[in-house]
């Protein structure tokens, strides 16, 4: 699973990424040093979408960004309980990352779906 994430990172220009289901990362390439960013941003993104949904009952926002200093965390809401979180260096192209990741939505959904139907292997 991490191989697919790595490949997507290469195309999108992101450094790290994770697929999160029900608040738990089922696959992640975040290094030990960067894990705090994943943990913190995961909680933050859940809160951000929750607040946004309050003003938009329909046609929900499916993408949120969090910029911490030189790091930009991008979060895509694939389903209510499925998030794809990635970290983008400030100098990299946001639009390219957005386009590539959105293009991979179906693949990410398939991975998420498969992982919920079978036990996770390391």
């Amino acid at each position: 699973m991490s191989k697919i994430l790595n490949k997507l990172e290469g195309m999108a220009g992101t450094d790290y990424s994770a697929l999160v289901i029900n608040n738990r990362p089922i696959a992640s390439t975040f290094s030990k040093e960067e894990m705090l960013y994943l943990k913190l941003s995961q909680q933050a993104f859940v809160h951000i979408f929750k607040q946004a949904d309050k003003i938009q009952a329909n046609d929900l926002y499916d993408e949120a960004h969090l910029q911490l200093g030189q790091r930009r965390l991008l979060c895509f809401r694939l389903e209510d309980n499925i998030l794809y979180i990635s970290m983008l260096p400030q100098t990299n192209d946001i639009q390219k990352a957005q386009k590539v990741i959105r293009g991979a939505f179906s693949v990410l959904r398939k991975i998420a779906s498969a992982s919920t139907h079978q036990p996770q292997k390391n």
Binding site: I48, E63, H65, Q67
Partner: peptide
Amino acid sequence: IENKAPQLDQIRNISLHAPYK
């Protein structure tokens, strides 16, 4: 977040997006 994790860099931006929105 800054109170919870003061060791991290300052949060400069939070944004929400969706296609055609």
